[in-house]
């Protein structure tokens, strides 16, 4: 058991590309869930259209990567409208089911044989992000010190990912502290009251869905670029659940909640992964209990357990305001 290497894995994990990408997607979800009170359980669908926007544009149509990202964002706007117009009038719990269903419908169609010429069906598409890596200003082999050593490739995507996360967080901060955000929070507290004061609740929810959706699509594009491949089945509802875990862990309706949440989430997940791997291979945990191949599953069982305990004992998350919590626990 090499604790130093386990910890350094975990430390890398908490700032790595995945943490940045999930933080970005969670910033979008925080706009929906944290500020508007929309139970959007289809955030992964926005990531899906963002990812395939890039992949299809580059791999199938031969367009430049930048155009692909824009197409992904365009798809997210269309999706937000198509999804929002029928479902945003529904009660919160209905909305949750309708959005999760919409995400699954999208995944089924992207992986279907109909879409195969465009999306590559179940096999997906790959090798479309060279345009991104050609722009990489880092040319060395590795950067950093000690545990924080990343390849030039990872560093490039981390820089872009975290910059986007910070930029989007600042944008959300500006909006939330404007009267626009005040209406959004009013909608979260009580739709009818907001409507009785002359606010077009439906319009604000739709704007919120579009904004958070675009941020989600950006995260999706980045995810596709990071692994240089898209596969429809990686965009399943579980991704949305992880995003909820991240938002709640950091603190819903806190500007830096999703960022902090993602950093901690990925620290814990990578730590568990490394630890379990080391523990099973060194025999600390006998293979009759957990085998090496089960580590992935065990890790996510822990995520589930963590989400439960968090929601039971600290539903406001780390940055949550105790005062707010007393009023109404979400």
């Amino acid at each position: 058991m090499d604790f130093i290497s386990i910890l350094s894995d975990a430390a890398r994990g908490m700032f790595g590309p995945e943490a940045a990408i999930y933080a970005l997607a969670a910033v979008g979800l925080n706009v929906h869930f944290g500020y508007t009170g929309l139970l959007n359980f289809g955030q992964v669908a926005f990531m899906l259209v963002g990812a395939y926007g890039v992949a299809v544009s580059v791999a199938t149509w031969g367009l430049p990567l930048g155009v692909g990202v824009l197409i992904g964002i365009g798809c997210a706007v269309v999706l937000a409208l198509v999804l929002g117009i029928p479902t945003l009038r529904l009660r919160g719990d209905y909305l949750a089911i309708a959005t999760i269903a919409a995400g699954e419908i999208l995944r089924y169609f992207y992986r279907s044989s109909y879409a195969q010429p465009l999306t590559g069906g179940v096999y997906g598409l790959r090798q479309f992000a060279d345009g991104f890596y050609n722009l990489n200003p880092f040319t060395g082999t590795s950067y950093g010190f000690g545990a924080f050593t990343f390849s030039a490739r990872s560093l490039w995507i981390m820089v872009v990912g975290w910059s986007l996360t910070v930029l989007c967080s600042l944008l959300v901060w500006l909006l939330i502290h404007a009267p626009w955000g005040r209406v959004l929070r009013a909608v979260r507290e009580d739709e009818l009251a907001a409507r009785s004061l002359g606010k077009n609740v439906y319009g604000f929810k739709l704007q919120s869905l579009v904004l958070g959706g675009i941020i989600g699509a950006l995260a999706g594009s980045l995810l596709a670029i990071n692994v240089q491949s898209v596969q429809p089945d990686s965009y399943n509802p579980v991704v949305t659940f992880y995003l909820y875990a991240i938002v709640i862990l950091g603190g819903a309706s806190r500007i830096w909640g999703p960022v902090l949440g993602s950093v901690i989430f990925w620290f814990v997940v990578t730590f568990l992964d490394s630890f379990l791997r080391a523990a099973t291979s060194s025999g600390l945990i006998p293979s009759s209990i957990i085998e090496g191949s089960d580590v992935g599953a065990v890790r996510f069982a822990f995520v589930g357990l963590g989400l439960m305990l968090l929601m039971i004992f600290k539903p406001a998350g780390i940055l949550g305001n105790r005062k707010e919590l007393r009023l109404d626990v979400r």
């Binding site: 404007a178 955000g181 979260r188 507290e189 009785s196 002359g198 606010k199 009023l327």
Partner: peptide, 29 residues
């Protein structure tokens, strides 16, 4: 009564103002 619980009293009242420019997406930024 529909008090907007997690808004301050002032925010509750200010919400009532009509024609707020800052309630439009782009000007809000």
């Amino acid at each position: 009564t529909k008090a907007l619980m997690r808004l301050t009293t002032l925010e509750n009242v200010m919400l009532g103002a009509t024609g707020q420019r800052g309630e439009h997406f782009l000007p809000a930024i």
